[in-house]
Amino acid sequence: MSTVTAQETPPGADLEHQAEFDAKVAADQRIEPRDWMPEAYRRTLVRQVSQHAHSEIIGMQPEGDWIASAPSLRRKAILLAKVQDEAGHGLYLYAAAETLGVDRADLTERLIEGRQKYSSIFNYPSLTFADVGVIGWLVDGAAICNQVPLCRSSFGPYSRAMVRICKEESFHQRQGYELLMRMMEGTEGQRRMVQDAVDRWWWPSLMMFGPPDAESPNTRQSMAWRIKRDTNDDLRQKFVDMSVPQAEKLGVTLPDPELAWNGERGHYDFGEPDWVEFKQVVSGAGPKNAERVARRRAAHEKGAWVREAATAYARKHQSAEEATV
């Protein structure tokens, strides 16, 4: 696998750089922003890191909707802290993307104009307070499964951002699971809410790992570059294997009749997610796509005068300072 390098053969002078780059990646060393890197590597990373940042920001919405109505002050504080963390994650990730020579304002424009994607999971609605718990358990769980290997991403700023983000995400997952445990010990109505939320989020969570390997053309190159460390199907299997015992402990049923332990493989067998639905949601036809982006756009546009004021103030005071020097 380590013999696969850039698909584009660089001309003359770049050959030496390319060889250095390949050797570094192969030795599991980090590529830093000032290092030479193939243009396609830079482009792929910009896309990956900015989509990840956008996912954090859009991902604030489904849970953010429940902060105002959280049924205890403790849950309200936890949820508020969590959603605040997600804004923070978005900020580190935009900063990591900026080290690749892009501008956060431009990335924001790309998001609100629908030119860049974010994780399609956030295009599903959060219908009850149990969704807060299930998003923490399954959605953050799947995100961690995807992201922990990225702490070893070949690109330094991204890998370092991921270390911090993964630590916080693991707290998020635990708060979700703890909420569900509490609800399962509660009333019959609460148990029904939890099962209903699991039924709705299970399949979209499996889709978070992306299309099957056979239909994921970029995986091989990204793995060669070590900006992706495992294939989609491997991560999905790992997630299923981890989630089944957690579901059993919780006392919920995962909505997949094909789910069964396969002793020969040493893994759980599971059914195929609905890839037609996946493609629809990714391409913008999910239940909440339009609303999520519209809300971000509205906040951005409504806030334009505030950002302009801050810029004008900074300019005035900078020139005042210069005048006194």
């Binding site: 604030m60 508020l80 900020l91 906040a299 409504k302 806030g303």
Partner: peptide, 29 residues
């Protein structure tokens, strides 16, 4: 203040206003 979460002019303001709300919630509790 929580009404500003996902609706602030800039991400830094989302973080700051959420943080202030969280402090006040802690005092209230």
């Amino acid at each position: 203040l929580v009404e500003w979460v996902t609706d602030a002019p800039e991400l830094e303001e989302e973080v700051a206003l959420a943080n202030i709300a969280l402090d006040l919630l802690g005092q209230a509790r």
